[in-house]
């Protein structure tokens, strides 16, 4: 089922992680990404993994959900591993046969690159799992609002994102529905040559387009009926508030970065 797509899926909950201000989570995710790139020792990876595990535990996200999120990336992960394993230059051979050479440095690199990719992915998934898409958009808009001074249309941007996010589940639902209806009329979406299959998509795409335009039209009308006229001077229904928990989160983030730098310096 299309509904089972987990990319960017939000798992509602009421944990300290869920309750953090979305701005805090956005900034910390950014810090986390930088931190993963700063790691320069196995001890550093250990620290990042421990931090990730701790946040996962506190937010009550099942580790399985994180792993499932990584499924679509499995190809990239394997590719990274193979590339680093076989094509790292060096003389410290672990294994050598004809033109196939594996070096200790290569193994080292492969493991650390794969770890890095997996850590980056699971970190960002943790953000989307614990923060509703609307909250993320809200947070982004607030974080980017200084750019308004430079005439960047931040508000319009975030409105577009908001609407798009709101419509994705609707579109998926609609696709499901139309797919069922056409399958009920004997549509065959799975077999056939490539051109045949492309043609078989028309009965799906046309109704989908028609209904998207209809929805957009209806939404525009509804917004106009409520006298919507752009972002200038609008107040928000949901105000974002930083609380002491956000301060604590920033402190922990800073500790993580400091720890990584320290371990890197010590070479542990």
């Amino acid at each position: 089922m299309l509904k089972d797509i987990t990319l960017g899926q939000y798992f509602p909950g009421d944990t300290p992680v869920h309750r953090l201000d979305p701005r805090t989570k956005l900034i910390l995710t950014f810090v986390y990404i930088v931190a993963v790139f700063l790691v320069g020792s196995w001890g550093g990876y250990g620290l990042v993994i421990a931090a990730l595990a701790a946040v996962t535990a506190v937010s009550r996200i099942r580790p399985k959900a994180l792993l499932r999120g990584m499924k679509p990336l499995i190809f990239i992960i394997i590719f990274t591993a193979v590339l680093n394993l076989f094509f790292t230059p060096g003389e410290d051979y672990l294994f050598r046969w004809r033109f196939i050479k594996i070096t200790y440095t290569g193994v080292d690199r492969a493991i650390s690159m794969v770890l890095r990719v997996m850590l980056l992915v699971s970190g960002t998934f943790l953000l989307t799992y614990t923060t509703s898409p609307l909250a993320i958009t809200d947070g982004l808009e607030r974080l980017l609002s200084p750019l308004k001074k430079l005439h960047v249309p931040v508000y319009e941007f975030s409105l577009m994102m908001c609407i798009a996010l709101r419509f994705i589940p609707l579109l998926i639902e609609e696709t499901d529905r139309i797919m069922s209806a056409q399958k009920a009329r004997g549509a065959d979406l799975e077999t056939g040559t490539l051109p045949e299959r492309a043609r078989a998509l028309l009965p799906l795409l046309i109704p989908l387009f028609v209904s998207s335009f209809r929805r957009a039209d209806e939404l525009a009308l509804a917004m106009e009926c409520r006298c919507y006229n752009g972002g200038e001077g609008r107040t928000r229904m949901k105000q974002l508030h930083m609380a002491w928990q956000d301060g604590a989160a920033f402190l922990l983030g800073a500790l993580l970065v400091a720890g990584i730098l320290l371990l890197r310096r010590l070479g542990i």
């Binding site: 529905r177 139309i178 209806a181 046309i206 109704p207 209904s211």
Partner: peptide, 17 residues
């Protein structure tokens, strides 16, 4: 089964293409 059992879903007009 698809051919012997005809199913008309809710608001079938959206499937016209």
């Amino acid at each position: 089964a698809r051919f012997r059992v005809g199913v008309v879903f809710q608001y079938p007009e959206y499937q016209l293409f």
